[in-house]
Amino acid sequence: ETFPLDVLVNTAAEDLPRGVDPSRKENFLSDEDFKAVFGMTRSAFANLPLWKQQNLKKEKGLF
């Protein structure tokens, strides 16, 4: 299941849709939104070091 970017960005855990893991908001973006937000594919993002993934998520309001 995916959700629009505005539902996930800068949203407190208690305000997220049911079933969304607040530590993994990026997994609930569509592939198109994911690429638009991070400028890379999911596989490229997954290959980044964890610290870099976290920094990007913070920068984009998805942490």
Rank of each mutant, 00 (worst) to 15 (best):
D15M: 09
Q54D: 14
A44E: 14
F34N: 00
N10A: 08
L62S: 02
E14D: 13
N10D: 08
P4Y: 04
E26G: 02
L50E: 11
D6N: 12
F45N: 00
E26D: 04
E32R: 09
D21A: 03
A46H: 11
K35Q: 14
L56E: 02
P4V: 03
R24F: 14
A12D: 10
F45E: 00
E26L: 04
S43G: 11
V9H: 05
F45Y: 05
N55R: 13
F63A: 15
N27V: 11
K60F: 07
L62H: 03
N27H: 12
F28P: 02
V37K: 01
F38V: 01
T11E: 06
R18Q: 14
Q53N: 00
A36C: 11
K58V: 11
P17V: 03
K25A: 08
K52A: 11
G19M: 11
N47W: 08
R18T: 13
L56I: 10
T2N: 06
K25W: 04
G39H: 10
L8W: 02
N55W: 12
E59K: 09
M40C: 06
P4N: 06
G39K: 09
E26K: 02
S30F: 01
N10V: 08
K57S: 02
F63L: 15
D31R: 02
G61D: 05
P4S: 07
P22G: 06
L50V: 12
Q53M: 02
D15I: 06
S30D: 07
F38E: 00
K35E: 15
T2Q: 07
S23N: 14
L8M: 05
K57V: 07
V7N: 06
A36Y: 13
N55S: 14
V37A: 08
T2H: 10
K35R: 13
G19I: 11
P49K: 01
N27L: 13
E1Y: 13
P49F: 01
A36K: 13
V7F: 15
V20F: 06
W51S: 09
D21T: 05
F63I: 13
T11A: 12
F3Q: 06
V9W: 05
G19F: 09
P22W: 02
P4A: 08
D15K: 10
L29P: 01
L48A: 01
S30R: 05
V20S: 05
F34S: 00
L62N: 02
Q53A: 03
L48C: 02
A46W: 10
L16P: 07
F28Y: 15
R24E: 06
K25H: 04
L48N: 00
A13R: 11
K35I: 14
T11D: 06
L5Q: 05
K60R: 08
V20Q: 05
P4H: 05
K60H: 12
G39Q: 11
L50C: 14
F63V: 12
N27A: 14
E32P: 08
E14C: 13
Q54C: 14
P4M: 04
T41M: 08
D21V: 05
S30T: 13
A44V: 11
F3T: 03
N47S: 14
F45W: 07
K25T: 10
S23A: 14
E1G: 11
K35S: 12
L48F: 04
P4R: 02
A46N: 12
P17E: 04
N27C: 13
T2A: 07
G39P: 00
A46S: 13
Q53F: 00
R24Q: 11
L29Q: 01
L5G: 03
E32F: 10
G19W: 10
W51R: 08
D31A: 08
P49Y: 01
A36L: 13
F63E: 14
K35A: 14
F3C: 07
T41F: 04
P17S: 02
D31C: 06
A46E: 11
E14K: 15
K35L: 15
D33I: 06
L62Q: 04
A36H: 12
